[in-house]
Every structure is written in C-alpha cells, then in structure tokens.
Nucleic acid binder design. Structure first.
Lengths: 219, 219
DNA sequence: CGTGCAGTTGAGCAAATTCAACGCTTGTGG
DNA sequence: CCACAAGCGTTGAATTTGCTCAACTGCACG
C-alpha cells in the first residue's frame, strides 16, 4: 500500500534521473512510517506546530497554504499520490497543510529519518532530492504568478495533465476557490478564464470539475 | 575572509537556532572550497550547465533569475554576503546566477560535500538547513507577489533593512529594473511606488539608490 | 422543500501596464 | 575641455486587466 506511483518529474529538458539514486532512501521511508486516513478538509498540521513528520500522499489530495494580509489565503501547492510534503519546516511548521478530499497519508518521524541518515547515505540523497524538487516546484509557481490570468489557468491545467500521461481528460479534486487561491486570482476570474477557453475550443467541460484538454493546449 | 557575517534569519516568531547545530557543516564548507572574484554583471552559471558547486557570497551581491514567456526575466532572489546559493539545481542548473556588482564568491564542489557528508552528519544537517531556508525564502517571495505594488516595495525594503540591524538607511546595489523584475512589476511602477512613499514621508531618498526608512515602515 | 454552497455572468472600478517624453549622470572621443 | 551618446530614473496620458459588488443558476443535503 505504501507502493504509490512515482510522481512524474516536472522539469522539462532534463536527463532522466536514475531511479537507483534515491531508491534506498525511499525504501527506508517506506519501512519507517505508517499510513493515516483523513476526512475531507482536515488539517494535517498548522503553523507553529512542531514539525515531527515527513509525509507522502498515498491517496487523495493535500494542499499547503499560508494566510497573509490578515485574511487572504495563498495555496502553495497541491500534492497528489506519490508526492512528498511537509519539508518546508525548519523545526516548527510555518505553513499549514490540509486534505482537499478524503485522503490517505503516509508519514515517518523525522528523528527516525535522521537516525537512518547517519548510516544510509541513500536517505540523505533522498531527502536532498525531494528538497530540490520542492524548491523547483516553488520557483515554477512564482513564475506562474507573473503571467496573465488566462495563462495561469492554462499552466495549471497543464501541470495537472502532466501527472496523468494517459488521458487529456482531468478531474479537478478542488473547488474554484482553491484554484483561485493557488493562482492568485479570484474565483470569478478563474471562471471567466475557463469559459473563455471553452469559447475558443481550447478545452471542454462535462461538469465544472471535469475538463478535457484540446491538443493545442498540450505544450 | 571566509568569515562572513551570518545572514539574519528571515522567519519571524521562531526560536533562535543554536549555532552549534550546523556549525561543523559550515566549517567543512569553509575548508573544502575557495573564493573567486567576479566583475559586475558576470554570469556565474546558467541553465543547463552541470551543477558542480555550492556557493556563498563573500562580498558584493548576486542575483538568480529565469526567463519566461520568451523574453521576460524574473529574479528569484538577491544574495548578500553570508548567503548560500546554487542549491536549486538537481544535476543541472535550471536557473541562472550573475553578479549585481563586483563580487567575491566562495564555492565548494558538491562531490566534496557529498563525500564529507558520509562521515560528518553535521554537513548533512547544514545542507538540509540551508535548503529549508531557501524554500522558506521562495515561499515568502510568492506571497510577496500577491500584494499590491506599494506593499511589494515596502516588503522589499524591509527585507533589505532586516539584514542591517544597525541603520535604517540602505544602499541598493541594483538598478530599478532589477527591483522590478524581482517584484514582478515594471520599472515605472517601482518608481511611482517609491515617489508615492516619499510623498507620504514613509521614506526619503538622498540618491535614487540610497533610501532612508521612516520608523513607521519598520514593521 | 427550503437552505447553503459552488459556479457563472455582468457592470463599474481600481490598479498596473504600455507608450512616450524628458532630466540627470557618466563615460568616451574629438 | 567640451560635445554627445548611453544608461538610469522619473513622470504623464491612455489603455488593459483583473477585482469588487451584485445577481442568478444548479445542485446537494438536511
């Protein structure tokens, strides 16, 4: 059950990484932890809490977010099965994480990982690896925020599509308000951008959550 | 000379880190590398290059950036003396780094660090530590991009001021176009925001690069 | 069968960009 | 030493973009 599909790398023109590089790290991770189930919209951790664990999504979807300017919310990332999260912490968490839908999350104690790291260098490479992935992801997100609303949405849809190499039909697990807070827009702007994309036949929607991409959109 | 002032932590309400935690890591870093001098606007590395080194600024200022949408530039960060950079890479760099002014940069081979890491766990903690700092920095930057122009500028000025606990007078090493590309604005908007801040006496400027903050601005 | 949440649409508005012009400083060549 | 070009910074006017406020729909759940 701890066997989840490895997330597809988001970096574009890069040489394929040898899976062996981080393999022993992953095995340690699998062995040292245990899965937990959460209902929808359940907080997994919040800012200020001691950062005891490192997490991996097994099933469902998780979002991390901060609040700013008093009451506005920014979603830093959505994590899908196979993704690791909870790394952004120093000693205490400084952002929050919660489920988008009923989800299963695998977690391991950081102390256990640290102990294992002293004798298994694979664990170290593993940690550094997912750390740098997270860093790249965050940097890409910053870039995304500099585009216009339309392009942000397209980027977002592409990001989701990239995880399912199979179909060009995707099923959003989150409401419009999440998409908006992820992209730094309002729900209205998200809605408008989507209807605009429909109008030019770049996408089609069977329900508001189920979107089919036209080939032209796939980079 | 490898002895540069430790950069002030940007996280707010957090317990002060024991310097001992990452100390042996820093010592290894100091011992394994060597400094290099660069003229102004000199590229240190660019996307696609093999990421051989980890860097620390000794003197001057360094910016990292990506290009997007064909020709626009986004500056991810400015690094000042004591700051580490070049960590964002997997195996090859995916962003570029160059000097803002004549600078001295200390660099150590990643292979040397990796070798040292297998027998000195302090190096591991050191690497993970600066990685998570970088992650937090990048996340904060995303948040910054969601505010209005005025607040982005104020945030930026505060970020700079925070490194010099002494004076509320700062000397920007970079031109307006860099500030603009860092904050996701145009140079015109940066200029306007600054003159606006002058108009309400939140700041004063002796030259366009030399800015004095009024107390009200210091959070 | 109503209440509430999610999503869409429209009209007016605020904010930042674009395009353009101009001042200041700096460095270079005559 | 002066003239002039280039880079940096500022300012103005017109335009575009996304936001705010508001209404309305469909759907799910009690």
């Amino acid at each position: 059950m701890a066997r989840a599909a490895r997330a597809a790398s988001k970096s574009k023109g890069q040489k394929r990484r040898r899976p062996s590089a981080a393999l022993s790290g992953v095995q340690s991770f699998d062995r040292l932890g245990s899965p937990t189930s959460y209902p929808r919209n359940k907080k997994i951790y919040k800012p200020g809490e001691l950062a005891e664990y490192l997490y991996r999504v097994e099933a469902g979807c998780v979002r991390t977010y901060s609040e700013f300017n008093g009451s506005r919310r920014h979603i830093h990332a959505f994590y899908y099965p196979g993704d690791y999260f909870g790394l952004e912490a120093n000693e205490h968490h400084n952002i929050a994480a919660e489920t988008v839908m009923p989800s299963s999350v695998f977690r391991v104690k950081r102390t256990a990982l640290a102990a294992q790291a002293t004798r298994d260098s694979g664990v170290v490479r593993f940690l550094l690896h997912i750390g740098s992935l997270e860093l790249q992801r965050t940097q890409n997100h910053s870039l995304r925020l500099l585009n216009g609303a339309q392009m942000r949405i397209v980027d977002f849809l592409r990001e989701i599509t990239a995880r399912k190499p199979s179909a060009r039909e995707i099923d959003l697990p989150m409401p419009r308000s999440d998409v908006a807070d992820y992209l730094g827009l309002t729900t209205e702007s998200v809605s408008r951008a989507l209807t605009q994309l429909k109008k030019v036949s770049a996408i089609s929607m069977s329900t508001s959550r189920r979107i089919t991409m036209r080939d032209a959109l796939l980079s």
